Lab assay of single mutants.
Amino acid sequence: MTEYKLVVVGAGGVGKSALTIQLIQNHFVDEYDPTIEDSYRKQVVIDGETCLLDILDTAGQEEYSAMRDQYMRTGEGFLCVFAINNTKSFEDIHHYREQIKRVKDSEDVPMVLVGNKCDLPSRTVDTKQAQDLARSYGIPFIETSAKTRQGVDDAFYTLVREIRKHKEKMSKDGKKKKKKSKTKCVIM
């Protein structure tokens, strides 16, 4: 069974824990209790493949930012979460993405942009803004509501699919490099 290491990042209060708990335990946590770091595991079937999701729910508070490099190193894919009623959390996505790329030393890291709290009427981040940002990053965008469960499975499952595509691409690139290195030079 394939294991996928997913990391949920975003500013404090955007609903990272609520999304994760909704996926794992099928219930909505409405009281806000700032996370330092929590880890969850769940076995699911995605596109006919049974897999184990190892999900790291991270601290959004700035005082825990020193811990970010460590979990970013171990993560295979990242859910970059903002709240649709919090423009600052949307603007912060850029910083999370840049930090992930720096730590992973790669421009090509599996990510999904997630606009959470889409059940709320007080939207300050337009869907088109988020779609445009995701398009500019070359990553999928999904709106979710941890409260109603809308888009929750889709967000995590899409990230797994992005990781699969990335692994497939990397193995193809690896095979191309191996083929090239088999060419021999004969000096007579």
Rank of each mutant, 00 (worst) to 15 (best):
D38W: 00
N26V: 04
I55W: 04
A59S: 13
T50A: 11
V14A: 12
D30C: 11
L6Y: 05
L56K: 04
V7W: 12
L53V: 13
C51Y: 13
I21T: 10
K16A: 04
L56R: 05
T50W: 06
V44F: 15
F28H: 05
V9K: 03
N26A: 14
D38C: 01
G13E: 14
G12C: 09
V29F: 13
G60W: 03
Q25R: 10
K16Y: 00
Q43T: 13
L23Q: 15
D33M: 05
I36V: 11
V45F: 09
N26W: 06
G10I: 01
A18Q: 09
Y4C: 13
D38K: 01
E62F: 08
D57N: 00
T58K: 02
E3M: 08
D33Y: 04
V14H: 12
D57R: 00
D47F: 04
Y40M: 02
G13T: 10
H27G: 15
K5V: 02
G60V: 03
T50Q: 11
I24H: 12
A59T: 10
I21L: 12
A11H: 07
Y32L: 11
Y4F: 15
V14N: 12
K5Q: 07
Q43A: 11
E37D: 15
V29H: 10
G60A: 05
L19W: 04
L53F: 11
V7K: 06
V29L: 11
D57K: 00
K5L: 02
Y64A: 14
Q43K: 14
P34K: 06
E31Q: 08
V45Y: 08
Q61S: 14
S17V: 00
Q61N: 13
L53R: 03
G15I: 00
T2P: 12
V45T: 14
L19A: 15
L6C: 07
K42P: 09
A18E: 02
Q25N: 15
D30V: 09
D30F: 08
V45N: 13
K5S: 08
G48R: 10
F28V: 04
T58A: 06
I21K: 04
E31N: 08
Q61W: 06
V29Q: 09
E31A: 08
L56P: 01
G48S: 09
L23T: 15
V45I: 11
I46W: 08
S39A: 07
I21Y: 09
Y40F: 10
H27L: 15
I21M: 11
T50R: 11
Y4E: 09
A18H: 04
G13Y: 09
V45C: 14
V29M: 14
C51D: 08
N26T: 09
E49G: 08
K16M: 03
V45P: 11
